[in-house]
Design a protein around this nucleic acid. Structure first.
Length: 175
DNA sequence: TAAGTGATCTCT
DNA sequence: GAGATCACTTAA
């Protein structure tokens, strides 16, 4: 079943954990590619120094301030698109970075494989968009979730870079 | 381990 | 307008 926007309209850390084991589905032409989400990172609120939203709303990060269930896509290092899903209330800047799906590890590889770019920025996660989330009934237990510090955010200082806002599945099961 | 790559942010 | 920075990948 397709996941609705209100699924994302909750505490970001909670949603991040619940997103593990769900499916990211992409329609390319007539084909649908469904990949299980195995790794995510949370960026929660303007106080989070590692978040793009920590310095207020800008032309780039405005989708983070929008309603939950929309995508935030941006380019980094001149060549890699990052895919995020916005969470929380409108005007509360928060999003979850999808770092790994299926057998792909790394946010840059993911977007390259699924042909995701800025066209999805600010779009709603639904079938019409061509990129959405599905719940296929896989249950993830708390002990299967590993918590770890986020990647590439050392610039945010010791407090925010050490927070365990990264969640990944320990045993990747093949459905 | 280092280089590639370019939009965006933060100063002038 | 210029310069620094960056939620990464790949090939050695």
């Amino acid at each position: 079943m397709v996941i609705k926007p209100n699924f994302f309209n909750k505490n970001t850390l909670l949603v991040a954990k619940k997103l593990l084991g769900k499916y990211l589905v992409r329609r390319l032409g007539k084909k649908e590619i469904a990949l299980m989400i195995t790794e995510v990172e949370a960026y929660d609120g303007h106080k989070d120094k590692a978040s793009h939203a920590s310095r207020g709303k800008t032309k780039r990060n405005y989708p983070m301030f929008g309603p939950a269930g929309h995508f935030y896509v941006y380019l980094t290092y001149g060549m890699h698109w990052m895919l995020n899903i916005v969470t929380g209330e409108k005007d509360y800047p928060a999003a979850i970075l999808i770092r790994g799906v299926g057998n792909l590890n790394g946010p840059g590889k993911l977007t390259k494989f699924l042909k995701i770019d800025k066209r999805f920025n600010g779009k709603k996660a639904e079938k019409k968009t061509g990129l959405w989330f599905e719940d296929r009934g896989i249950k993830i237990k708390e002990r299967d979730i590993k918590k770890a510090p986020r990647i590439g955010v050392l610039y945010a200082g010791p407090i925010w870079s050490k927070k365990h806002y990264r969640f990944l599945l320990k045993n990747i099961k093949n459905p």
